[in-house]
């Protein structure tokens, strides 16, 4: 998807695209592509879980089920119908809010998953916001004195933390704050059904802290790089020469110009969180989508697996589009069509 797209359009389409706002047409194109991707993603999910031979029925009954039982259940689950009919039933059910019933306890999937979406959203948004704030702040601090002591220390820590798996970070935090060293925070974050995650904010601290620690290094390194570049530019030199204060140069001149490339990385980190919640929620027994997926996979609860993976993929796809558009809006140079 490079610049060739515009060149190859037939003349009529080209003039039409040129007449509408470039950003709008871009957003439209990305959205259309996103919907297409999501459709194909749903097909992949459906095939992986339901169509591969015998899966759903064997999943429910176990590998040693008798053929008669399997045939009976396949009929019950409409597995004996043609594949496209099954897919249509599933996808049209999704649009009508009918997600099927959980295999493990028979409750509607929507009731099971709905509150989990809200719980996970709290985690992701909190971690995203705090991580961005810390990452951008540390990046600016390090860039202030390039190759200074602080810069070196922060960069080495960032390099190391980048490669740490979430579950190691999580267990490290539990050791530090919830069991071995200190006892100031709860080591598990179970929230009973129907209770808001905000009801007991101390439960949120460790899961959010884990996710923050995992994403900050990326944001830090991007921000540091962009900030150093901005600080070496002519307009910052100019501002310094006319006597603008250091703080003002950083915040008003350099920051806005270095935030655009960082937005991409922030977006990528929010995307990353969609996967990161799986392990982190599991560690802390936090009732979100990630822990729900692990539960569903271990009990082979296919309708729940299908729905949760689809929700996470949808988040991924649309977050991607949002990131690109915001990054585009934040950097005026990119808004103009290329020559």
């Amino acid at each position: 998807m490079s610049t060739t797209g515009d060149v190859r359009l037939p003349r009529a389409a080209r003039t039409k695209a040129a007449s509408s706002h470039p950003i709008l047409s871009l957003v439209g194109r990305r959205l259309a592509l996103g919907v297409l991707t999501l459709f194909l993603v749903s097909v992949v999910i459906f095939f992986a879980t339901q169509v591969l031979p015998g899966n759903a029925a064997y999943a429910v009954l176990g590998q040693h089920a008798t053929p008669e039982r399997v045939a009976e259940l396949e009929k019950q689950l409409h597995l004996d119908e043609p594949v496209y009919v099954q897919y249509w039933d599933w996808i049209s059910g999704l649009f009508q809010g009918n997600l099927g019933n959980s295999f493990s306890n028979g409750d509607p999937v929507s009731e099971l998953v709905g509150p989990r979406i809200a719980n996970s959203a709290v985690l992701v948004l909190l971690a995203g916001a705090i991580g961005t704030f810390i990452g951008v702040g540390l990046g600016m601090l390090a860039a202030r004195r390039r190759d200074g002591i602080l810069d070196n220390i922060l960069s080495v820590i960032a390099l190391a933390v980048t490669a740490l798996p979430e579950f190691v970070v999580a267990i490290g935090l539990v050791m530090l704050f919830a069991s071995l060293a200190l006892h100031i925070l709860p080591g598990t974050s179970f929230i009973p059904p129907g209770v808001s995650p905000w009801a007991n904010p101390s439960l949120l601290v460790l899961p959010v802290a884990t996710l923050v620690i995992v994403i900050v290094p990326y944001i830090f390194r991007m921000m540091r790089g962009a900030m150093i570049e901005a600080l070496e530019s002519d307009y910052v030199e100019m501002a310094k020469l006319k006597g603008v204060s250091r703080r003002r140069v950083m915040l008003v001149h350099a920051l806005p110009n270095s935030i655009a490339p960082t937005i991409q990385v922030i977006g990528l980190n929010l995307l990353y969180l969609a996967g990161g919640i799986v392990v982190v929620e599991y560690v802390f027994a936090y009732p979100g989508l990630g822990a729900g997926l692990v539960d569903a996979v271990s009990s082979r609860d296919i309708p729940t697996i299908q729905f949760i993976t689809l929700v996470l993929a949808a988040f991924y796809v649309f977050m991607n589009i949002l990131t690109d558009v915001v990054a585009l809006l934040a950097s005026p140079r990119r808004r103009l069509p290329r020559a």
Binding site: V41, Y272, A274, G275, V278, R300, L312, V317
Partner: peptide, 19 residues
Amino acid sequence: VDIILAFPAIVFALLLVSV
């Protein structure tokens, strides 16, 4: 590539393993 990248890595792995 776009389709596989739409899944977080561990979710994609879980999806395959769930089968």
